[in-house]
Design a protein around this nucleic acid. Structure first.
Length: 211
DNA sequence: CACCCGATTATCT
DNA sequence: GATAATCGGGTGT
């Protein structure tokens, strides 16, 4: 099964992704999550954005949290695909992953690194005050703060949840997708497992980008 | 724009 | 005790 990469009109879709979407190689899912819409519904309010940057991590990758086996922190990566893995880092930030892998690896997930806000921008600006523009959500710690995602959402099922879910959003042509090395790692720095939409201002700022 | 650095804490060794 | 899939503010070019 493949997504449609032919010239398709850019039409937003609010159809939720199904379980099988996440049951593929982690790097395929990372690539195909570009253009999808991440939605957080809370207390009658919706905040959402189009995913514009992702990174893939699976358990035979030394940079993956699951590389050294299951722990109290990383156990969601070993659980069912389509669920959330959220971790707290640098004493300040929450980072959001979607559990995704084929049936041949023990654990894996896709880090959502940046979104372009589409709904609830007023609430997003409140959550990120005093920041505006692309600074609202052009980084993994920024987008969770923007949408109000915390460790409380850890292990939530994107496929069945009415609070946190992902929809088809808009289709992205493969020619618009850039592959590069991942950001901020101390090991496995050269693996081409970061994906982002070319020329999208909401993609995080980086120094060196290998394509 | 490029580089440098401190904050702050859950988790792992 | 050390580390970390980050961020934002600071300084210098």
């Amino acid at each position: 099964m493949r997504m449609n990469h032919t010239k398709t009109p850019v039409v937003a879709s609010n159809v939720e992704l199904n379980r099988s979407f996440y049951e593929r190689d982690t790097h395929i899912v990372a690539r195909e999550l570009l253009g999808k819409e991440l939605v957080h519904y809370k207390a009658g309010n919706i905040r959402a954005g189009i995913i514009v940057e992702t990174e893939a991590y699976d358990s035979h990758d030394p940079a993956c949290h699951a590389y050294r086996g299951k722990t109290k922190r990383n156990y969601p990566l070993f659980g069912p695909v389509g669920h959330a893995y959220i971790y707290f880092i640098y004493g300040n930030h929450y980072c959001l992953n979607v559990v995704a892998r084929n049936n041949h690896v023990k654990a894996g997930g896709v880090l959502i690194r940046a979104i372009e806000p589409t709904q609830g921008v007023t609430f997003i600006e409140q959550a990120r005050h005093p920041v505006h523009g692309y600074h609202l959500s052009n980084g993994p710690g920024k987008l969770t703060q923007a949408l109000g995602i915390t460790k409380l959402h850890n292990t939530i099922d994107f496929v069945t949840s009415d609070e946190l879910y992902i929809t088809e959003g808009q289709s992205i042509e493969s020619s618009e997708i850039i592959t590069s090395a991942r950001i901020g790692l101390s090991i496995a720095q050269d693996a081409p497992l970061r994906f982002f939409i070319n020329n999208n201002p909401w993609v995080s700022k980086t120094k060196h980008v290998k394509s």
